[in-house]
Amino acid sequence: MSPDTESAAAPTREHRNIYQPIPMTVADRRDETADVRTLRLEFPGDAERTRFFEAYRVGQFGLYGMPGQGECVFCVASPPTRTDAIECTFRQAGRVTAALRDREVGQRITFRGPYGNHFPIEQWKGKNLLFVAGGIALPPLRAVIWNILDRRDEFGKVAILYGARTVADLVYKHELAEWDARDNVDLVQTVDPGGETDDWRGKIGFVPAVLEEVAPKPADTIALVCGPPIMIKFTLPVLAKLGFPAADTYTTLENRMKCGVGKCGRCNVGHLYVCKDGPVFTVEQLKAMPHADM
């Protein structure tokens, strides 16, 4: 095959190539726990930044990568109300996350997105919100929380229950303190029994049990739940028992992804593409899915 035949018709950098990311500069990095890091990423220019924020809705994800290593899927952990940069928070679990973790301030990574669906927060105006998060799964909800707090007057009461195995495993500690100090946010933190420290002032207990104890009334309230599968498994029945309707309870799904744009065929759960129809689903949708596929 001669590569140059009619190459004028082929896509180049000037043409559109949906698999080509843009370079982003690491503007800041923070260690959340021993193996969880947050990167703050700046866009290469105003055009890219504007294009991103015109499209971005909270709950969407991106592919973060290093040339030569590959790409990884994480949610965008910062809200669309903060438009100078984006943040992502991830646990080091393999080669790509190791490479991303090693980036220093001023160095670059690649980014594609935003992809997927989003939390329908415009439909939630005037409603109360209950956030339930476990461990490393706070980032997607953190983006929603800041989105709501940046537009605080448009929403009702905000309650947050966040739990982790140990105090050391809690992410975004500064922000937890900030939410705790606000009188228009009701934050409850908990750690698993044995995970507390001497000066721990939060609860001790598993998220589902603490939820049962502290949950607000379900009336006019949207519930958002993100956490490890085991936490989700035991939390959803509690929410149902407390009277939160499955259609008003939201979560996000993770599956292996490569393309992020509905082509590579890797992320489906039944006939749904997590990269296109998700990552945000209601519990009602979840119940209709073939569970063996998740």
């Binding site: 035949t5 080509q20 670059r108």
Partner: peptide, 23 residues
């Protein structure tokens, strides 16, 4: 090949990608 980079130590430069599309 769907994407290409020149690697310069800790940085990289995107290179042109020209997948052939012969008649």
């Amino acid at each position: 090949v769907i994407d290409r980079y020149q690697l310069d130590g800790d940085d990289f430069t995107p290179l042109e990608v020209r997948p052939p599309a012969p008649r």
